[in-house]
């Protein structure tokens, strides 16, 4: 436990040390939500399932933050290897599993922190949403699992690569389809059927759907199904990443 905490602590310290990065990473969702979301909703005056556009889009934007920030967290493994700190961790009397878990929890914590900022800004802006105690708790659980999936995918890819540029490239290939297929901007049941099938394959679809069902009250799938899928995937990917990291180059 202490090992995991140590690795986690380092990630948190490093994250809060780079204030400029936090701000720049928040610009993107900010524009989506308050400029695109607010104006598009006004201009076209769309409503999905009786929900005004801005409200519909908020969980989607939270999903974007989770996706981008989680996936690119993995590059820290490559930098750790480049700067040699990975070796320091590998010769320490801790298991490789705890390195993976510590880094994952660290990444997830920083991601949830950023989602919170978007969340709070939306509240200040006046976006209406449900905010019961259990609603918030469940939403955090969903964010945790969804972010965990993408952080682990990032770490898994990074444990096979030594080059940060290569990592960026691969991750961009991965992010773009997930970004468009996960019901960020529109409900996926209105899509042509072959695209909606592709959407079912994206883990983010279920994360966003669950957050939407909790905060906004509209959803595609049952909440329990969302949680089960996201939770199951998290465990599977954790096991795979553990194995990949165990055999990663030094």
């Amino acid at each position: 436990m202490q090992d995991i905490y140590t690795i986690w602590l380092r990630e948190i310290k490093l994250f809060f040390r780079k204030k400029s990065r936090i701000i720049s990473s928040l610009m993107f969702p900010f524009f989506w939500l308050f400029i695109f979301g607010a104006s598009f909703g006004k201009v076209v005056n769309v409503q999905f399932e009786g929900v005004e556009y801005m409200r519909f889009m908020l969980p989607g934007v939270m999903g974007i933050v989770i996706l981008f920030q989680s996936v690119f967290f993995g590059v820290s493994v490559i930098w750790d290897r480049r700067f040699g700190f990975l070796k320091e961790m590998l010769v320490a009397p801790i298991t490789r599993n705890s390195i993976v878990l510590g880094k994952t929890l660290g990444g997830v914590t920083t991601v949830i922190f950023q989602v919170f900022i978007v969340w709070i800004l939306a509240l200040i802006y006046g976006v209406k949403m449900n905010l019961g105690f259990f609603t918030i708790l469940t939403a955090i659980l969903i964010m945790f699992l969804t972010s965990g999936i993408f952080v682990l995918i990032g770490i898994a890819i990074a444990s096979r690569l030594t080059d940060p540029q290569g990592f960026q490239f691969i991750m961009n290939l991965f992010i773009v389809p997930v970004f468009f297929l996960s019901g960020v901007f529109f409900p996926i049941n209105d899509l042509p059927s072959w695209i909606s099938w592709a959407s079912y394959a994206s883990p983010l679809t279920y994360g966003i759907d669950a957050i939407r069902s909790l905060l906004i009250g509209t959803s595609q799938f049952m909440l329990v199904l969302d949680i089960a899928i996201v939770g199951g995937l998290f465990l599977i990917i954790l096991a795979i990443t553990d194995q990949l990291f165990k055999h990663s180059p030094i």
Binding site: D3, Y5, L9, L14, L86
Partner: peptide, 20 residues
């Protein structure tokens, strides 16, 4: 090859090692 965390201070690097 160097194996320090450059974004931490000297003391923090030591601290991290002590915890590990």
């Amino acid at each position: 090859d160097p194996s320090l965390d450059e974004d931490l201070t000297a003391e923090e690097n030591m601290e991290m090692h002590g915890r590990l």
